[in-house]
């Protein structure tokens, strides 16, 4: 495990913002840390970076205890927290050079990073004049500058346009698959995480509601039978009379919980016998967006 926490808790005054969190981030994963705004994502990240002092519980990164190995652990981490922290009176390149001096990284890395995040053309422009997306990309370049093993990114696609989001996503996937990095990325957008993460943790009001691989998440979502046909309402009434549970009816399809393949066939023949034309009938996983809402609303 690259990151492993146990019973991690944190209070802001009397309000507990992180509750007994046990994170398990395996090496080589893109770990999507999902949760609505205010769920405690940024607080957790600050705890992982030792910016906030842990009230209870323990944090191990690279199998080393965080408090007592702060500097050696931080030297392997690149991070981006909330809005990127850059000096607005300096140019993009100067920001990177400044950081390279602090980290004793060769200056040649600066140009590589500028190239990587497509800021070479704007390198000499004041960072204060950058668009939000450019600032975000500069922030990512700063995080990657020291070539860290673990990247911790807090909402890295915030404020980016669709192209920018795709670029970042591809960059992160490339870092993990080609350069054997581990990425811990927080987001409030499930669709975002779904497209790149290999592992997911869902946090709500400071509590971990789900943690596992993205496949585990798909399997806990209950599959549904979706039937596409005309006059869905009449068909739904017919199925209900026959003792089926119809969970959703709309203009072009109706849904029932999936129990078995045989049952799917039964539904199909029943509808056919009663002269409903079934355009399609298929098993679908509940979409993760809905699952996410279900999980977070239950809590």
């Amino acid at each position: 495990m690259v990151i492993s926490t146990e019973g991690l808790s944190f209070n802001f005054g009397s309000q507990q913002v992180v509750k007994s969190l046990s994170l398990q981030v395996p090496e080589g994963s893109i770990y999507g840390f999902l949760g609505p705004n205010g769920a405690g994502k940024t607080t957790t990240i600050k705890l992982l970076l030792n910016l906030l002092k842990t009230d209870q519980g323990s944090i191990h990164i690279f199998n080393k205890e965080l408090q007592s190995n702060r500097i050696s652990i931080l030297s392997e981490i690149g991070s981006l927290i909330e809005q990127p922290a850059i000096y607005l009176h300096l140019s993009g390149r100067e920001n990177l050079i400044n950081r390279a001096l602090l980290l004793q990284v060769p200056e040649k890395r600066v140009d590589e990073m500028l190239d990587l995040v497509h800021l070479t053309d704007a390198a000499n422009k004041k960072a204060g004049k950058y668009s939000l997306g450019m600032k975000q990309r500069l922030g990512i370049a700063l995080a990657l500058l020291s070539d860290p093993k673990l990247l911790i990114l807090d909402e890295p696609t915030n404020g980016l346009d669709p192209n920018g989001i795709i670029e970042i996503r591809e960059l992160l996937i490339r870092l993990v698959t080609q350069h054997k990095k581990t990425v811990f990325v927080s987001s409030h957008l499930l669709a975002e995480v779904e497209r790149m993460a290999t592992h997911v943790g869902i946090i709500h009001k400071g509590e971990m509601l789900f943690q596992g691989s993205i496949k585990d998440l798909e399997t806990i979502s209950q599959p549904q039978v979706q039937v596409e046909l005309d006059s869905t309402v009449d068909a739904a009434n017919l199925l209900k009379k026959q003792g089926f549970l119809v969970t959703d009816v709309n203009d072009d399809h109706l849904s029932l919980p999936f129990t078995s393949k045989e049952q799917m066939g039964e539904i199909n023949s029943l509808l056919n016998k009663n002269e409903y034309t079934v355009y399609s009938i298929r098993k679908v996983h509940k979409d993760l967006e809905k699952l996410f809402l279900d999980i977070t609303q239950k809590a």
Partner: peptide, 10 residues
Amino acid sequence: ETWKSLFSLP
């Protein structure tokens, strides 16, 4: 807002 990034450097 660079305190946080300064203090998360090694």
